[in-house]
């Protein structure tokens, strides 16, 4: 057991962390919005945690709080991410269509340039020697695991609430939803902010895990990966992002023997999956399920 945890514990933590980031994109997707902002908020949350954990001016706070500084970091990261998401979300989400995707690409790039050049974020080197919450890396499952459970329960409850139904209405037809008295901008911004807060918290939790934090944490490449998790897993069910993240985040490990050709395979997976699995893996599975569970007479024409 000990050896297993040593070897696969970190992979497991990574999978849960990636699944959480995929879910952070799933929230805007619930309201039919394509956001690429998660890596930006993830990087931001990480920097907040890293700065609070290392800067001298926070030393007295750290001494006073002891280990409770960590939950405080998560809280600050969540707050800052939420406020920033409002600032980014409102102008982009007044508009319909591709604008949120474009606005969030711009957001991630602007943040990246800022992190790379500001003094407080350590420039190109970043911040290192971030104090650890646990001694063993696999122990981080003790914070990521419960967070994942809470988020899944939250989504499950949300889907059947008034807000969740509003998201769904906007996703199906924004104009019709607006005509029914739902304020599309309000709900779209709400979905975007929830996702941003989640990504910020995951970032704040990941900074101690990774020990160093730099501008490479939030890039366009990461945006593409998270998007692929959601769309390949299936963007219409909460299990989609989970499954997509688990499969695609494990893919580099599985493809390790291919070495340099690994990323080529990654790209091919994206192309093939978007053509042949338009509703993602979960969509394909549920279609398969309904095919076998319906009596053949009911299928008609046979």
């Amino acid at each position: 057991m000990e050896g297993f945890l040593q070897n696969y514990g970190f992979l497991l933590v990574t999978l849960v962390q990636q699944a959480l980031l995929a879910l952070s994109l799933y929230f805007p997707f619930m309201a039919g919005q394509l956001s690429l902002a998660s890596p930006g908020f993830y990087a931001l949350g990480g920097y907040i945690a890293a700065i609070m954990a290392t800067v001298d001016s926070c030393a007295s706070l750290r001494n006073a709080l002891g280990w409770t500084i960590f939950p405080l970091e998560w809280l600050v990261a969540a707050l800052v991410s939420g406020i920033l998401a409002l600032i980014v979300g409102i102008p982009s989400l007044r508009l319909r269509g591709i604008y949120l995707a474009l606005g969030t690409i711009a957001f991630v790039e602007i943040l990246r340039v800022l992190f790379l050049n500001l003094d407080i974020t350590g420039g190109a080197i970043g911040i290192f020697d971030i104090p650890q919450l646990f001694e063993e890396r696999w122990s981080y499952i003790l914070i990521f695991g419960p967070l994942l459970v809470v988020v899944l329960l939250f989504i499950h409850r949300l889907q059947h609430s008034r807000t969740g139904r509003a998201f769904k209405a906007i996703r199906e037809d924004e104009l019709a939803a607006g005509a029914m008295g739902i304020n599309p901008t309000y709900y779209k911004v709400q979905a975007f902010v929830i996702g941003a807060v989640l990504a910020g918290i995951v970032g704040a939790m990941s900074a101690p895990l990774l020990n160093t934090w730099n501008a490479r944490q939030g890039t366009f490449d990461a945006s593409v990966s998270y998007l692929a998790y959601v769309l390949i897993g299936g963007s219409r069910s909460l299990w989609g992002p989970l499954l997509g993240a688990a499969l695609l985040a494990a893919l580099p490990e599985l493809l390790r023997p291919l070495r340099d050709a690994r990323l080529i395979m990654n790209g091919l997976v994206l192309v093939v999956a978007s053509i042949y699995l338009p509703h993602g893996i979960v969509g394909a599975l549920s279609r398969l399920w309904s095919f076998f569970s319906t009596p053949s007479a009911a299928r008609g024409g046979e």
Binding site: L231, I232, L263, I275
Partner: peptide, 12 residues
């Protein structure tokens, strides 16, 4: 999905 497939082609 065209966005994802074109990103896939770019990656390749």
């Amino acid at each position: 999905l065209a966005l994802v497939s074109s990103l896939g082609v770019a990656l390749v």
